[in-house]
């Protein structure tokens, strides 16, 4: 028999294969939402506001400003929320993790696989708004190929955050606090719909530590011109993903191993 080690890729892929098998049963509805939601946002905000109130922001046409910003929105909503609800349901109601952990899989591998799967999904869906924006006049650039990677790293951090929350609440209703107090404020001060320099000074400082804001800036720079500070932004997101990964593992170990 092969020796068992920590973080075995074959085991992580096996856990992800379970997610993939389930995803194949509902991918159409998810893909539909991910495609049409940015179109609706772009029509409402981009064209609506863009044609009446705001023509451009910092020289960027408003519909493209919003379209590139929506990448972060798509990433957070397809990572943090599925991680929270999915993890809680699998742990509490479906007892899926009991079955997986009875196999030679440890919590570290389970959490890593769940994060990677959500990261891949969110990175894919995160690119949909960008693709849609190309049809609204956004010029293609080679550096845009970095966007899926940026989205993936950010999604890992939010997936780990969601898993941590799922391992911390006792009832599913308590996610309302998380969405109201954490996700929505992060989403609103990410610079998606308006530049953050329009915000009060205190909120501008808060926005700087908002990972979604950093993602929005990275995506816009990939679309309109890279900056040196982007390396720092990416490093910050990577560090956050790593820290949250370890926190999520710790919380899930406390929840799953009694």
């Amino acid at each position: 028999m092969k020796p068992v080690r920590r973080l075995e890729p074959v085991v992580i892929l096996a856990v992800m294969s379970r997610e993939f098998a389930n995803f194949r049963t509902f991918w159409k509805s998810t893909a539909f939402t991910s495609t049409f939601e940015p179109i609706v946002y772009l029509l409402a905000f981009g064209l609506g506001l863009g044609s009446t109130l705001v023509a451009d922001v910092d020289g960027i046409e408003y519909v493209q400003f919003v379209g590139t910003g929506l990448v972060a929105t798509a990433v957070v909503f397809s990572s943090a929320l599925p991680a929270m609800f999915g993890t809680f349901v699998k742990e509490r109601f479906q007892r899926t993790y009991d079955a997986i952990l009875a196999a030679p899989v440890d919590v570290e591998e389970l959490v890593t696989a769940e994060m990677l799967w959500i990261g891949i999904r969110a990175a894919t869906f995160g690119c949909f708004p960008l693709i849609v924006t190309l049809f609204f006049g956004l010029e293609p650039r080679l550096t845009m190929l970095l966007v899926p990677f940026y989205a993936f790293v950010t999604a890992l951090a939010f997936a780990a955050f969601g898993i941590t929350m799922a391992a911390s609440v006792s009832k599913i209703d308590q996610f309302n606090y998380v969405t109201t107090l954490v996700i929505t404020p992060l989403f609103l001060v990410a610079g998606t719909f308006f530049p953050i320099d329009q915000l009060p000074e205190g909120l501008q400082v808060v926005a700087q530590v908002n990972p979604l804001y950093q993602l929005v800036q990275l995506v816009r720079d990939a679309c309109f011109g890279m900056e040196a500070v982007d390396a720092l932004r990416l490093a910050g997101l990577l560090a956050l993903a790593i820290v949250m990964w370890r926190v999520a593992i710790r919380r899930m170990e406390k929840r799953l191993i009694i």
Binding site: M1, V4, R18, A21, R95, T96, A102, A103, P104, D106
Partner: peptide, 17 residues
């Protein structure tokens, strides 16, 4: 983990996908 690789478990509750 090594022990689990060599044993099978059938749980009390149905947790099939």
């Amino acid at each position: 983990k090594a022990a689990r690789a060599r044993m099978g478990v059938v749980p009390q509750l149905d947790n099939l996908d």
